[in-house]
Design a binder for these strands. Structure first.
Lengths: 256, 256
DNA sequence: CATCTTTTCAAATGAACGTTTGAATAATAC
DNA sequence: GTATTATTCAAACGTTCATTTGAAAAGATG
């Protein structure tokens, strides 16, 4: 029975799938710019031209790699929120339940190899801050609908918190999660892991802690509006700063 | 007086400094791999060979770009924590004060052009998840001492929270902060900005909200240890996952 | 079996990359 | 003013990159 299930669920190792699997792994390890098609096709044991034949080019390959996982994730997130709202007949679901629905579905993918496992978690964690405009644009477009729906759910669940604050906190939660997933070496320094602890065991420990942190941040007191960071605004500040601050050119800032 | 101060504090635009300034900006905009020495030297209006002459190579240039800002930041963070602990004669400083000392100093750099302004904030935010091993290793080494000291301060300030939990939450705070700074296009989607709001104004709004979120997360309830994400662990999981999970090769995982 | 489509393959293209070289120029020291 | 050092410069090096090409092989269809 186990064998039969595995056969059904495990995709066949076609040229196309082998490229997707290897590309996903190498994009995480070396980044999009740092991964060449020769590295991918070499490791996947397919011809160099296969990427262009099956996907059309390097950017289109990255798009296929991301969409393969995100399509499932988006549907799952919608489904879970549907369930949550249906089971609460009329009343808005509790905030911590929405946190669990949105971020728990993602973290859960880390333990399911067929959904990309922790490789995909790292990829998605790093893609949000990719310097490549088309990647951020793709992510923004893929996330737009689901994020809007969850944001509204949070707003309904937290009537005492201004809409703007909810949006900011959503952003902060995404950041804390993405960084925990991206898993830099720095994490190894900051958090004192047992050095021989297996990655899958680390992932298991992550969720309850992240969940607790996110809910704590989501429920925090409303900030006063005029708090200033150390060093203070206005120090060495002039109109020139405002002009120079516009970093993004028009060509890579476009989001459909 | 303003003129005199500006002359004193503003570094002379030597070849070396012009390269550093342009490189900092382009590394943020296109990433390390996506920025060529020809782009840098072209925009800085210096000869192509100048980077190798003054810094020794591209990696050494990136190192110089980061260290120029981090050396100041590290000293400032140490100084602020010194002050904090001195003013509390014996008792450990309050947790929210430590949050302010660590993250407030960083955010404050965003409004000071001579300290790199928001360009540096983006750079540091993205560098933590860089796919280039030498960048993460450099950051880990640069942060090690200061992070250890602050972590201890948090542990002293939160005697009821286990040390491990403090370390995790420190990591989550760093992530939320770094992502807020990295400022992807996605933030524009998630958070409904006034479209014509100036970047410097956005930065001013960021700090009180981030501060509130971080303190809320830091003070959250201690998580139960066996909470599982949606989808659950054990689904589609086998020993093979553990082996495949080891992504990093020895060559780029080294941290001195 | 013959025909047509899909896929694979080795080879080549032109462009861009980081780095090196050695001479020319500028700055400093005596 | 001459000797010495520091810096700039144009040019070239060898390598690697994404993509294209056209033929060969494999598979599907009648």
């Amino acid at each position: 029975m186990f064998t039969a299930m595995a056969v059904i669920t495990q995709p066949v190792a076609t040229t196309r799938n082998r490229i997707l699997d290897v590309a996903e792994r190498l994009f995480v390890k070396h980044g999009y710019d740092g991964t060449s098609l020769r590295m991918i096709t070499g490791e996947a044991k397919v011809n160099l031209a296969a990427v262009n034949y099956h996907f059309g080019g390097k950017e289109a390959l990255m798009e296929a790699v991301l969409k393969r996982r995100l399509d499932w994730l988006n549907e799952e997130r919608m489904r879970v929120l549907d369930e949550l709202e249906a089971s609460a007949d009329g009343r808005p679901p509790r905030p911590h339940k929405i946190v669990e629905a949105f971020f728990g579905t993602l973290i859960g993918m880390g333990s399911n190899r067929e959904l990309g496992g922790e490789v995909f978690l790292k990829l998605i964690g790093r893609s949000f801050t990719s310097p490549n405009g088309f990647i951020r644009a793709l992510l923004a477009e893929e996330y737009r609908e689901v994020v809007e729906r969850y944001k509204q759910a949070f707003i309904n669940a937290l009537p005492e918190v201004p809409r703007q604050e909810v949006a900011w906190r959503f952003q902060f939660m995404l950041g804390a999660t993405a960084y925990a997933l991206a898993g830099s070496d720095f994490l190894q320094v900051s958090v004192q892991f047992d050095s021989d602890e297996l990655p899958i065991e680390q992932a298991r420990r992550l969720w309850p802690r992240l969940y607790s942190f996110l809910v704590g941040g989501m429920r925090a007191a409303i900030p006063e509006g005029d708090l200033q960071p150390l060093g203070g605004f206005g120090l060495g500040l002039s109109m020139a700063d405002l002009e120079a601050a516009d970093l993004d050119d028009a060509d890579d800032a476009a989001v459909a």
